[in-house]
Design a protein around this nucleic acid. Structure first.
Length: 604
RNA sequence: GGUCCGGUAGCUCAGUUGAAUAGAGCAACUGCCUUCUAAGCAGUAGGUCAUUGGUUUGAAUCCAAUCCGGAUCACCA
């Protein structure tokens, strides 16, 4: 801090575990006269059944330096407690495990420094730009459960990145053109008699989705007729009149037929209005939206460049390919023989477009794992074209949400609709709240707000608590729980704390008890991990780390809460200590949940 | 067939840079509300970590083989 200049000093809390590692590495060098870095040390939280807070696992040292564990354990333990008595209170040695107990004041210092810090966990701007693309719906049907997993994941990853200092741009690619939307258009022309979402009083995305279903019904019927008339199944699918009309519509669209464009635009607007409503309801937002209709031609110039650079090659029929067999993949088409571009080529163009607009360091694509191969190919092609942004592409691949009966199929009507599910969750939240009757003094607006908070808390937590890489099974018969490892459990813990803090908040001027109870210790040791948990979640691109963490915090607090009274603590100093612990727990819960996109209620 | 992912308690999932007796939640069973919110807490029961072999002082975790499930390898998106 220089004189006369206002310098903002951000105090970064040094994690205990890292501090211990650094000190022990030094101690070991001095005491055993061996050269060792802190990264070689294995430090972990001491298991509950043993005495201590942090444990140094000695086996690595024993093996590498051929030392006796009893001997080195004692040397390290003695030297540590002697030279760093401000950190280590005592140690015990069990087999190859050296368990250290920390001085209470280490935890109390941490508590004092953070209990009123509403920014705890927030890291300073690191000037790195990241794009997160998520949601990316088709415009022929409403959002479903699979989209919800995608959206919650993408939103949360973006929030986590921001929290840890990244500059984040959230983007969405809308697949607004192609055969799928033409199917809805044809069905509307054939069956709607001019009906609109307004005339039938239906949400626009559902309205259009219904015509997509009607298309499939009509198509199916025509296929059966075709087969009866002697066609093969494949022929019947292609030759069905409604399919031919759809193909014609697609060609007219590409040719720019004004009537077709007008209908296309009108139907898409209906869908967007519906999407916006759903996004608002579930708290999704985007900084930038790309429309496929505007970007799908961008990739074509890649083809020329790729041919020139000998990355691509042309076949006799005029189609263009890339040979990825040296990489263990296949030959992949990048341009059809009729000169139209394929999916992968469009994605190449969009990646370039995004980079030109944002110069991102990293570009995260939240896309289901069925596209693992596609994303691998995308990155590989960009690398072969020597694009500077190629290595920054990261596919956040998540498993599909399945029903007990298997995959959801929109054509078979087995999808779990996003709007329906949210409405159902709100109904469950209402029923549970009324059953418990704790907020009878709430007015209708407050009640609706609470139901919404609880419903989305339950739903988001349910989808985010599972490791995103794994597929998950959703059983619509069993409604999502409000007890145990759930959003409402954590929200409840928060509400409990608020109920105490409404009566009395911690007073900075008051002294606090300096000796910690077991439960207080446990809680502080875990709360202290918060920033490192966020780093882990970011580096693994995995919000479930945060969900898991905050669940253990809530459990620890509830356990503490039932064993020790806060307001009626036996001494003023003890009450002040506990009020601070409660306040910090509330902060960590609120912040963790907000990073999952979940709000916390003051009462429930 | 090639490639990739997965298999842990009745169910849904943690734990996989190797480390102490493999953990939660739900469901089942026992207790605990005149005390800060019982959407809670404490406890009981439940396991051949798919199988077999290997590496290691030590394997759910690493290696190999096998079995089972899924995804993908489209001039679909």
């Amino acid at each position: 801090m220089t004189n006369g200049t206002f310098t903002f000093v951000k105090i970064q809390h040094m994690l205990l575990q890292q501090t211990i590692k650094n000190i022990l590495a030094q101690v070991i060098q001095d005491a055993l006269r061996i050269s060792i870095t802190e990264n070689e040390l294995v430090i972990q939280r001491t298991k509950e059944e043993f005495e201590g807070d942090y444990t140094l696992v000695l086996f690595g040292l024993v093996k590498k330096y051929k030392l006796n564990p009893e001997h080195i354990g004692k040397s390290i333990g003695d030297a540590s407690c002697e030279k760093h008595s401000n950190l280590f209170k005592s140690y015990n040695l069990l087999k190859g495990f050296l368990n250290f107990s920390l001085q209470d004041h280490c935890l109390l210092d941490f508590l004092t420094a953070t209990y009123s810090n509403l920014q705890f966990g927030n890291a300073p701007d690191n000037k790195k730009l990241v794009m997160v693309e998520y949601s990316s719906p088709n415009t022929n049907k409403p959002l479903h459960l699979g989209h919800l997993r995608n959206i919650f994941l993408g939103w949360s990853i973006a929030a986590l990145l921001k929290e840890r200092g990244y500059n984040v741009t959230k983007s969405c690619v809308v697949n607004d053109r192609g055969i799928h939307i033409c199917k809805s258009m044809i069905a509307w022309q054939l069956f709607a008699n001019g009906a609109t979402p307004t005339t039938v009083g239906q949400k626009g995305d559902h309205f259009v989705g219904d015509y997509y279903v009607k298309f499939n019904e009509a198509h199916k019927k025509q296929i059966e007729e075709g087969i009866t008339a002697g066609l093969t199944k494949e022929q019947a699918e292609k030759e069905a009149p409604i399919m031919k009309a759809t193909q014609q519509l697609l060609q007219d669209w590409e040719a720019g037929n004004p009537d077709v464009l007008e209908l296309w635009n009108r139907m898409n607007q209906w869908v967007y209005k519906g999407f916006d409503e759903t996004y608002r309801e579930i708290g999704a937002d985007f900084d930038k939206t790309y429309y496929e209709s505007k970007t799908y031609l961008l990739g074509k110039k890649f083809v020329e460049q790729g041919l020139k650079d000998d990355v691509f090659f042309k076949k006799e029929d005029g189609s263009v390919w890339i040979d990825l067999t040296p990489e263990g993949l296949d030959e992949k088409l990048v341009l059809r023989k009729d000169g139209t571009s394929v999916y992968i080529t469009q994605d190449l163009g969009l990646a370039e477009q995004k980079f030109q607009e944002y110069q991102y360091e990293k570009s995260i694509y939240v896309i289901a794992d069925e596209q693992n191969y596609h994303m691998k190919v995308l990155q590989l092609i960009l690398q072969k074209l020597k694009k500077p942004y190629a290595n920054g592409i990261y596919h956040l691949s998540y498993g599909m949400v399945e029903l007990p009966s298997g995959r959801m199929k929109s054509r078979e009507g087995t999808v779990v609709d996003a709007d329906d599910l949210v409405a159902e969750m709100i109904a469950v939240a209402r029923a549970k709240t009324e059953e418990l009757g704790k907020v009878k003094d709430f007015n209708p607006a407050e009640l609706n707000k609470l139901y919404h908070t609880l419903a989305l808390g339950a739903l988001k937590f349910y989808l985010l608590r599972v490791d995103s890489k794994k597929k998950m099974i959703f059983n619509p018969q069993e409604s999502i729980d409000f007890q145990g490892f759930t959003g409402p459990f954590i929200q409840y813990t928060y509400a409990r704390i608020q109920s105490i803090l409404r009566k009395e908040g911690p007073a900075a001027s008051q002294p606090i008890e300096s000796k910690l109870e077991k439960e207080e210790r446990e809680l502080l040791l875990s709360l202290e991990l918060f920033p490192s948990i966020l780093d882990q979640a970011v580096s693994e691109h995995n919000p479930s780390v945060v969900a898991l963490y905050i669940f253990t915090i809530a459990k620890l607090f509830n356990s503490f809460y039932t064993q020790h009274s806060i307001i009626n603590a036996t001494s003023m100093a003890s009450r002040q200590l506990r009020l601070r612990i409660a306040a910090l727990t509330a902060i960590v819960i609120q912040r963790s949940m907000s990073l999952l996109g979940i709000e916390v209620p003051n009462r429930m």
